[in-house]
Design a protein around this nucleic acid. Structure first.
Length: 379
RNA sequence: GCGACCGUGGUGUAAAGGUUAACAUCGAAGCUUGUGGAGCUUUUGAUCUGGGUUCGAUUCCCAGCGGCCGCC
């Protein structure tokens, strides 16, 4: 049921054109994966998500576990039935929330560093709101403060009930501030958990991806890729930080790609601004997800062929052009910057929706352009 | 017409007879990469007008103007 076919390998780079076959259809790669954390692309319904050209979405185990809970989703026919989405789905394991709700929150940083920073997190450090043990991670529910627990076995159990086509191993996503010793211990834990995830998995319909870690430590990235590459995963996620510049992103993705089994698909977790698309594809990435198009849209920032535009800026209110004159999406064919800018300034939901629709169309189109370039031998 | 109450950034509120009048929101600039977030950082912007009391009034007193409520 799950198969990755490589249609063409580039002679100029590590790029490859491919098709991932899943029980819910095919994904043409390289592909952009919109983020539907709680089973929805905020402001869009499943029909509209398809209309913007999405092939596959990624939902989140941790958030769906909290609400509405995997049992309810299972009763609704799994995520596909729950959201009436007939195409492929992924679920992230909750490993990223170990970071985003833990050290990420403590230090007020994301996973992408803007400047080179001193690595300050020492081995044995614990975040405030999250407790990381050898076997799993304790969280507190954002709803009622109740204790929640995720481990490789628990995460896989939840993901099997959610029923996505591609599921991810439960890992510890380390902070970019982790020092070498912390990273070493974390990496060993992630590798041990990877084996436990393989053992815990019982569904044959779902593909399981292992997650390569190692942060900015090149030797650990390579070691992680070798270790996980030797395990029987259906594909591989690239997690954690990718440095503070694009050169580092390219190097890490390239290095890791070179160590992994060439015939298995590779997913770059949480990276994918427009300027990253070519870098990821050239370095050997097949799929990648990013909250940027949806998250930014709700703040009034749209992505266009001429770069980012902050539609809440005053001058856009008097601008009667479409969002992106060269875009073929329904929004650009229909509405003006004046209208959408005014709506966004008034915090109208429709403004966020129109911006979200356009941004996703634009991102999916960019991925299609990457595929065309590989096909034409331009990349 | 009479009486009561009230006039503080654009809006909604706070405070005090004495150094830079607080907060929220709005405005402006920047940020956002496996989405706890319509969020975060920085920043512009105010005591209705005129008198009086006082060393000193935005605060207390008087008048005007404006608002609001009640009564005729």
């Amino acid at each position: 049921m799950f198969e990755f076919k490589i249609l063409k390998k580039s002679k100029k780079s590590r790029a490859r054109l491919g098709v991932i076959q899943t029980p819910h259809g095919e994904i043409e790669t390289p592909a952009f994966v919109p983020v539907a954390t709680r089973g929805t692309i905020r402001t869009l319904d499943s029909r509209e998500i398809e209309d913007v050209g999405s092939q596959v979405l990624i939902c989140n185990t941790f958030h769906l576990h909290i609400a509405p809970g995997e049992k309810l989703v299972q009763k609704a026919g799994g995520l596909h039935g729950y959201m009436d989405w007939k195409k492929p789905l992924m679920t992230d394991s909750g490993g990223f929330q170990v970071y985003s709700l833990g050290f990420g929150r403590d230090h007020g940083i994301g996973k992408v560093l803007k400047d080179e920073q001193e690595k300050v997190l020492k081995e044995g450090s614990q975040p405030h709101a999250v407790k990381i043990t050898d076997d799993g991670v304790y969280f507190r529910s954002p709803i009622d403060g109740k204790q929640l627990y995720l481990s490789p076995k628990v995460s896989i159990g939840i993901q099997e009930k959610l029923g996505a086509d591609i599921i991810f191993a439960f890992d510890e996503c380390p902070s970019p501030l982790a020092d070498e010793k912390y990273m070493r211990a974390s990496l060993e834990k992630t590798h041990r958990w990877a084996r436990e995830c393989l053992q815990a998995k019982s569904s044959k319909l779902q593909a399981l991806y292992g997650i390569v870690q190692g942060g900015g430590f090149s030797h650990m990235r390579i070691e992680s890729a070798k270790t996980l590459g030797a395990m029987d995963f259906d594909g591989y996620g690239f997690g954690g930080e990718f440095g503070y510049d694009k050169k580092t992103l390219k190097k890490i993705v390239s290095d890791v790609s070179d160590e992994l089994p060439a015939h298995k698909p590779r997913h770059i977790l949480g990276i994918g601004h427009p300027e990253d698309f070519l870098i990821i594809a050239q370095s050997g990435g097949d799929t990648f997800d990013c909250i940027a198009p949806t998250h930014y849209a709700r703040r009034g920032v749209i992505f266009t062929s001429k770069g980012r535009l902050d539609l809440r800026k005053p001058h856009f209110v008097k601008d009667f052009k479409p969002l992106d004159p060269s875009c073929k999406c329904d929004i650009c064919k229909t509405y003006t910057r004046t209208y959408i800018s005014s709506l966004l300034r008034a915090h109208e939901l429709t403004g966020m929706k129109l911006a979200t629709f356009h941004n996703l169309f634009y991102f999916n189109k960019l991925a299609a352009d990457v595929r065309r370039k590989i096909k034409n031998g331009e990349l």
